[in-house]
């Protein structure tokens, strides 16, 4: 563990809590892509299958449980409890166009072909693109609630910090995992224009609106 990875995990936790609180407090999931949340739940489910038979540390197990529980709780709030506020007209990204390539790619490029490893590789590739339905929805509505933009910023910052963690580990432990690094860079790049808008608008107190 290093400070960059710890900060990254904290950003990740903050993002998930902010989203849950936003939906719970406003009793609305307007502007939130349920499809992205489905993909995130799938990412954690496929990545943390080893939760039940591989103990790494208390921190590791606790965080995995929190990520799994909160992602399914978010799905419940979106698709059951506050279903009436789900904006399905704007949440139209075809997630099969993400799922199928990730399955194919995880069969082509993976560290090895054990079931757990294949699921892990699939979850890494899927996480890289899981935010696309959400970014697509924001581009369609042309705006996002400020709290939603904080959620997206924290979520983008988490993987950006993981990249710093991988650079740090490369130089201190000569450890590098090409699959995670390449997917993590792609994932962070997808947030690039969002980061720009967030920093130039939201941090200046303006609403998060895409240039018309």
């Amino acid at each position: 563990m290093n400070i960059f990875r710890l900060l990254g995990d904290i950003c990740h936790l903050v993002a998930i809590i902010v989203l849950l609180l936003k939906i719970w407090k406003t009793r609305s999931c307007a502007g939130i892509s349920g499809k992205s949340q489905i993909l995130f739940a799938l990412v954690y489910t496929t990545r943390y299958v080893d939760l039940f038979f591989t103990y790494v540390s208390l921190y590791n197990s606790v965080m995995k449980v929190i990520f799994l529980a909160s992602s399914y709780a978010t799905l419940y709030l979106i698709y059951v409890k506050f279903k009436a506020t789900y904006d399905f007209n704007h949440d139209t990204f075809r997630i099969e166009f993400l799922l199928i390539p990730c399955v194919i790619l995880s069969l082509l490029i993976t560290h090895d072909y054990s079931p757990v490893e294949l699921l892990w590789t699939f979850s890494i590739y899927l996480e890289a693109v899981a935010i696309l339905p959400q970014l697509f929805m924001v581009s369609k509505t042309g705006e996002a609630e400020t709290i939603t933009s904080h959620y997206l910023f924290a979520l983008g910052a988490y993987r950006a910090l993981y990249i710093v963690n991988w650079i740090y580990r490369y130089y201190t432990e000569s450890f590098i995992d090409g699959i995670a690094v390449v997917a993590g860079i792609i994932q962070t790049i997808l947030y690039a224009d969002f980061f720009y808008l967030y920093i130039t608008k939201v941090l200046k107190g303006k609403d998060f609106k895409l240039p018309a």
Binding site: M1, D9, V56, S57, H111, W120, I176, D177, G178, I179
Partner: peptide
């Protein structure tokens, strides 16, 4: 070494 990913990363 590169050949395995680190299981302790979330």
């Amino acid at each position: 070494h590169d050949h395995d990913h680190d299981h302790d990363e979330l």
